[in-house]
Write a protein that binds this DNA or RNA. Structure first.
Lengths: 347, 347
DNA sequence: CGAGGCAGGGAGAGCGCTCTCCGCGCGTGG
DNA sequence: CCACGCGCGGAGAGCGCTCTCCCTGCCTCG
């Protein structure tokens, strides 16, 4: 009820009210060392009474920990439009799942994520500066393009960082990833088991390791079933690019009876094109996506897809980062997750 | 090139290298007061040489500004699933646009957003504590449900905050919003002009002001064209809820020839149901969405929709907040944006 | 019964910055 | 020629915490 009229209460104030020293109040709050039960209660009462909340800046200053980490999305912004890159990636349900997984884990540890976009050199500098000035204890990096220089820069600056997905350039840094090859194999086997004999693939950008792995995994699995050749069309992980790719595939290989798209958004685009050309899904052409993100459920027919445990992966990434923050010497580590096939109507 | 072996350089170090006092270096960095040109250059050289980056915690401690704000998404999490709420909202392209707009503005001011979810009482307390302990200078609140107690709590605690959308409960707080009624009128006029005479609406949750406004705006405009009655079905702003609503509408009013959905996601769901029932869009039933978010472009036919300038609104919200942070006494203010009709194929 | 150990509380030194106050030196007006 | 003003740099006091060190008092063991 007592409204603080001017400045918020400090440790000192609480200590005075409780009749103890600052150190004791600090010990009660942080749970360091033993404090007498009785006194603990008195202190807690004083905290409630004063409405005390520890000042984070002051704490950070001495502990050299900020209790926040940077959640960085990096990629190449189109030179023209300003926010286009940010809008695209934040609107991608895949990123939404990453963010959700990260938050879900961090909140259990009292750590907060600062959202940053690194789409220009200037922005990358900002991220680095942010970390160097101790505003964040480490970085979680979701990179969308292959030549991203940020991982190397982070390693060089000896800043704790963990990536979502293996970096395209070889950099000694921790990351979480999916067994993309296994996921692609799941899709291939399902398609073949269904009776598809003329399968094609819509890939992601082929300079990204995940795209490569999904493609080679698909090719290998399909080859093992005696299908030596797989037509492909490269997309950019967006619905629009999926449409373009499907159009091309259909034009060049009209006999296709199965399509593996490297993510759900592209599968969604492919589906629209398939409909437009009068191909029934899954009867004429079976279609499998990747990710199991929300569009998979909105499509008609709903998408059979390879599920990535994105939230778990994101949580794992956050956990890895906090480990590195706590123990700076830790060696880079990678954690690989297993995909699963979710069978719906499209294949 | 000189790698700092132990601790990062401080102001003191820079001052020593430059041969001046700490105060002078501080003045150069912050551009407060006049400093001799010559000395400025010497100081800057020293900063470069040492690789100095000002410690944010130390600065915050004395300025009482953190240079970060909280970007809060509040809503009611389903008691069962943990991250379900976070995943849903972060996967919503609408929120992606909000985040993008906020970031785009904040980066011009050197302020960073901390992402927070307030889906439980505990989480709300965390947000309040975060602000009270000075970790963030204010809050940007995107609320997804009507009974959100957070706005009132923020006002009560005298913490700077700005909402995206007018609060359902009357609270003296700043917000940005869209002229929803005008947007709905745009949709209504277009439908009628097309020749639709039996129009229906799929609304958002009717305890949310935006949903109410879109509905009444639509009803009023349509009434002005001599259509006295509009069947409605309430949805929850998700694609799945749009499907359910459309099913019901079709069952109860088979003669419908025009539908206004209160957002694109629900329109997308409605479209799938319309297809399923063999209704051609737009020939048999014209369909208009709201928002102009990415799903509008993925649908076939692509959605005619009411565009919200979400990024601009988000940027405006951020600007408003920084104003309030800089001038604590400022009175609540609201900024209303104008919608626009984007005509595509669905109507 | 005395010495040593240990549980538990207090004092005080910073963490790295900003900002007020002070002082120096120069220019100017009476 | 002196007093005053002004431009500009330095000294030093904190901001609100944590944490090391010390001190007190009680318990235990020889």
């Amino acid at each position: 009820m007592s409204r603080p009229p001017t400045t918020p209460p400090t440790l000192e104030d609480v200590a005075r009210v409780a009749g103890v020293s600052r150190a004791t109040v600090s010990r009660v709050i942080n749970g360091t060392r033993n404090v007498d039960r009785k006194i603990q209660e008195i202190v807690r009462a004083a905290i409630d009474k004063t409405g005390y909340a520890p000042n984070r800046a002051a704490r950070s200053l001495v502990t050299k920990r900020s209790g926040t980490i940077a959640l960085v999305v990096s990629g190449a912004g189109d030179p023209g439009e300003e926010d286009a890159f940010a809008t695209r990636v934040f609107s991608d349900p895949f990123f939404g799942r990453v963010a959700s997984g990260v938050l879900g884990f961090l909140r259990t540890r009292g750590v907060h994520p600062v959202l940053m976009v690194a789409d220009t050199e200037r922005a990358r500098e900002d991220v680095l500066a942010f970390l160097r000035q101790g505003s964040a204890d480490g970085a979680l990096l979701v990179s969308t393009h292959a030549e991203d220089p940020l991982p190397a820069r982070l390693v060089e600056a000896e800043l704790p960082a963990v990536l979502f997905a293996r970096p395209a350039l070889p950099v000694p840094i921790s990351y979480v990833d999916l067994d993309h090859r296994a996921g692609a194999k799941l899709a291939a086997d399902h398609l073949v088991r269904r009776g598809c004999g003329r399968v094609a693939a819509i890939t992601g950008p082929l300079d990204v390791p995940a795209s490569q792995d999904r493609l080679t995994g698909f090719r290998d699995a399909v080859a093992r079933h005696g299908i030596p050749y797989v037509p492909i069309a490269e997309g950019g992980f967006t619905a629009a690019s999926g449409e373009v790719a499907m159009e091309r595939l259909l034009a060049e290989h009209p006999g296709i009876d199965g399509v593996f798209a490297a993510n759900d958004l592209m599968a969604q685009g492919a589906l629209a094109v398939l409909h437009k050309h009068g191909r029934r899904v899954p009867d004429d052409v079976a279609l499998i996506g990747f990710d199991d993100s929300s569009p998979a459920l909105v499509c008609r027919p709903r998408l059979t897809t390879v599920r990535q445990p994105v939230e778990d992966m994101a949580a794992g990434m956050a956990r890895l980062l906090l480990d590195h923050v706590e123990e700076p010497g830790l060696r880079p580590e990678s954690v690989i997750f297993e995909p699963a096939l979710v069978v719906r109507e499209s294949a």
